[in-house]
Nucleic acid binder design. Structure first.
Lengths: 232, 232
DNA sequence: TCAAGGCAAATTGTCGACAGACGACAATTT
DNA sequence: AAATTGTCGTCTGTCGACAATTTGCCTTGA
């Protein structure tokens, strides 16, 4: 007899145009087709896609709350611009969350559940780094961190992280290659695992502090340079 | 000669319909007219208010990203339910943010800018506490904390705090009177100010830790009791 | 009596249309 | 020539209508 708890056919995601449209727009932003500050007019998108404006609008709101778009009254949506200061604030928030999440994972003894997946993700990163596929590497990087936050068991942490992650990913096209010391970033993640393995929440916390601190400094500096040259 | 930096006429904020509707719904939720789990049907609201469904929908999305509503596909909006575990996670997140914000305020020497307003807010709280106007007191309480987060200068912190605050406020109708030791909560805020005045970020951090920790425990316990008796 | 299936009401998802708001450019004044 | 005002096209905010989906009820059959 069939277990009804195991859906043989997942719900055939016809969940609505709006979600599909949101994905299309997201891809366009992440891939750099749409650049920060670009206007995203409902009517234009709707015409192009051959749908009415309603689902486009819906998708816009979705991406707005994801932090990828901003809307001005009576003017519609624009791709969110982000400056170095903003990025710095973002990373500081990320720090607060992940620091605590790492400590929680250790404290509640959940580390064993995810050690293997974490290691697998690092290996993926190393491989991608060797192939110079930075954008893809960043995705896996975020998956690594997400897994830790998810395992912390605090749903709120995860929600905030996901929002931050989507914004970070949206910057990928701008980041290009921040630092390319081959496989360095990837391998640095082993330090996090080691700290987690000590079983000491405080060490987990400070390892995460350090790791994110490094990324923060690198990314923010990179952005400051971009602003200095291309800046208004 | 007129200073053009001083606008004689402020921008005549004529919020869109959707914003007004969002406010109406928010009030209904905060005041307890709409209870957690209640259905909020677009069509019904639209009929009642005498507008079309579009702005109601918009308002729904707004409150969804504020965390007051949730939406199920093809089923519409429902007032968000919140359980003790969820509240606990919420307070843990709040802790992470405010702890760091307090430290930042001290570190960047911004305390002097807000000492007076903070004291004024505490006095308001004391007064409201004496009048047993708990719901109003909570609003002022949140303003106190918001001012600190705002002054920290990290926009991300503020954004997250505002979202959390709106959810906390939405629970007010359920919290009723958690603990009523007259003026106790209000006066406890002086401890925070004292810690901030030491100029030591670490003390600021731990004062905030303690303060929010107390609130967290009280609120969560209160909720557990509610669940135990009224629980499904 | 109860389960299965189907029908009807209600509600959301989507659409095309219209009026008002905004930005850009042209016309006008100083 | 610079600044102000008038005009126009484009886009959003809102609307009413239709299609698709869900839910609860009612019928039907064992």
């Amino acid at each position: 007899m069939p277990m009804e708890s195991e859906p043989l056919f997942p719900p055939l995601a016809r969940d609505a145009l709006s979600q599909r449209i949101a994905r299309i727009l997201t891809d366009a932003i992440v891939s750099g087709q749409l650049k920060p500050g670009d206007r995203v007019a409902e009517s234009v998108i709707a015409r192009d896609l051959g749908v009415s404006r309603a689902p486009v609008r819906e998708a816009g709101r979705l991406l707005e709350s994801a932090g990828l778009l901003v809307s001005k009254a009576n003017r519609g949506f624009f791709v969110r611009t982000i400056d170095a200061e903003d990025l710095d604030a973002l990373y500081e928030l990320r720090l607060c969350i992940e620091r605590e999440a790492a400590a929680r994972v250790v404290r509640e003894g959940r580390l064993a559940d995810i050690l293997d997946p974490l290691r697998a993700l690092i290996e993926q990163m190393v491989a991608l780094s060797a192939e110079k596929r930075l954008m893809h590497q960043i995705v896996v990087d975020l998956q690594f961190h997400r897994l830790i936050v998810e395992t912390s068991g605090n749903q709120r942490f995860l929600a905030v992280f996901d929002k931050l992650a989507s914004e970070i990913q949206a910057c990928t096209a701008l980041i290009e290659r921040v630092f390319d010391e081959p496989g360095m970033i990837a391998r640095n993640h082993y330090l996090i695992i080691e700290a987690l393995e000590t079983g000491d929440p405080e060490q987990a916390r400070s390892a995460m502090d350090y790791h994110i601190g490094v990324a923060r400094k690198a990314v923010v500096e990179h952005f400051r340079k971009l602003e200095a040259e291309g800046g208004a």
